[in-house]
Structures are given as C-alpha cells and as structure tokens.
Design a protein around this nucleic acid. Structure first.
Lengths: 139, 139
DNA sequence: CAGTATCCTTAATGATACTG
DNA sequence: CAGTATCATTAAGGATACTG
C-alpha cells in the first residue's frame, strides 16, 4: 500500500480525495441530510422500531412539533423513512426506517464510536486552547 | 424473513441507542464539529498533506477567507489540526492534521462511501416525492 | 501572505396559536 | 393525535475593506 515517499500520511489513511480532484465527494450531500440538528436523533430513535409522531417527539427531548414535522418530512422525501397514515380518529401515523434509512444506522454508529473514542481528548484540547487564547472570539 | 413478532429490527442493525436511554450518544458532538459547511472539505484537503493558508483556500473552491480562518481555528481548537507559524516575511503558516484529525478521515471516507452508494436512490426518491407533493413547501 | 474587523443577508430553528 | 400557519429569534455564512 504505502509507497515510501516524501509524504508519510501517517499509517493507513484512507484516500478520501476523489481521483486527484479537489472535488467534494458526496460527503456534503450526506451532511446536508443528517448534519442538521435533529435528523440523526430521529433516526436513532427509529432504529429501535416503528414510532408514532407523539412518541417520537417524546423520545427526542427538546424538539418542537414544527421541527419534528420538518425533519420526518425531509427524511421521507429522501426515502430514509416510511410514513404510514391510519385513517382513524384520532389520527394515527407511524414512522419507520426504510432499508436505506437502516443502512444509515451503520454510519451513525461509526459517528458515535468515533465520538466516544475522542470526546475526552477533544474536550482537553479545547480547554487548553481556550486557556491559551482567552479573548479570541472563537468558540 | 418476517418473524411474526412485535419488533423485528431488520437483519443486522447496529445498536445505536445508548443503553436504553433516549440520550444523544456523542453523535451530535461530532456533527457539531464536522456538520458545518466547510470542515470536512478542509479535512479532506489536509488528508493529502501539509497545506498553507492560501493553498488551502484555493483547494476549497468557494470558501471565503473569513470562513477558512474560522474553520481552521475551530479544528485547531478541537485538536484535529496543527497550525505552525514561520516568522518569515511574508508570513507563512502551515496546517496539518493531527493523529486525531487523521482518524477522522476514516469516518469521512465512510460518509463518502455511503453517499456514493445511495446518491442515486435518494435522488430518485426525491423526484418521486416532489412529483407527488407539488406545492408542499418542503425542499 | 495570512490574517482581523465590520457589516449584511439568509437559512435554521423556536414559540405560539389554531385545526381536521 | 398529528399536524399547519405565523411570527420572532439566532446562528451561519458571505462581502468587503483594512493590516502586520
């Protein structure tokens, strides 16, 4: 794999660049989809199974009715979530992950794992940086 | 496939929930870090090797000087990037990924792979949804 | 070159009230 | 219950000018 060259690029780095291009691989597309404030939290909850609207809202503390609606709508539009309406009264609507949505849970798990592994180090780095740069505006 | 039961949880889903809690695993922390518009693009570029400020800016088309500064500062604060200043004139500043920053490239690669695998399906889902919901406001 | 400092625009999210 | 409709608030990002 590693061709002993000028640049070591550490041990086993994955090639993230797209064929020498400076191009954004599809990375931004995923982030535009799950990089918002609530999507992953909803996905994590739906990974447990089918959920109704209110149930979902209670499971994701802090989300407003409006944002939950927007979030599940967008996930539905992208084909990550299925929405099933039962014409009862009061109305009942169920949400569940599609196969594509489920495949995302692997990615989410990878994110969670990375976070768990580096959370402390990052927090420490921040404390150090903040101490070294009192009034920098950054935060 | 279908085990006539209450909850099937599909085939081999990773457990994303944190021990029965409704808690945000550290997922939001990672997303708060790389979910912004430019961080991953900068990381992808730095994954290729050491870069200077202007060089970085040229490699990430569209980024403003201000946003590049903010982005690298935040990455530095989090310990993902090292910043080295050479007191020459004109000034020369080099940026490179730290080991922690490098470890992120694996995650970024996973994101790129998932995106590549599902991009078409998602686009199709969107087209279908948009056709079925002409004036929905969602988009 | 590598930034800061300002000002401005827009997108994202939140709060609240109302409805089939 | 499961939304929609409005209005208000922030936060993110962009444009531009200036500096060691």
């Amino acid at each position: 794999m590693s061709v002993g060259h000028t640049q070591v690029t550490a041990s086993a780095e994955p090639v993230v660049s797209c064929g020498g291009e400076h191009e954004d691989c599809g990375i931004r597309e995923v982030l535009d989809r799950i990089g918002d404030k609530w999507s992953v939290l909803v996905i994590v909850e739906l990974a447990q199974g089918v959920r109704r609207f209110r149930q979902l809202q209670r499971s994701v503390p802090g989300i407003s009715q409006r944002m939950l609606t927007l979030t599940v709508r967008r996930l539905e539009r992208d084909g990550l979530v299925n929405r099933t309406v039962y014409p009862t009264v009061p109305p009942q609507v169920e949400y569940e992950l599609t196969p594509t949505g489920h495949s995302l849970t692997h990615l989410v798990k990878a994110l969670a794992d990375w976070s768990a592994a580096h959370r402390e180090g990052i927090a420490a780095s921040r404390r150090a940086w903040d101490a070294a740069h009192p009034d920098s505006g950054i935060r």
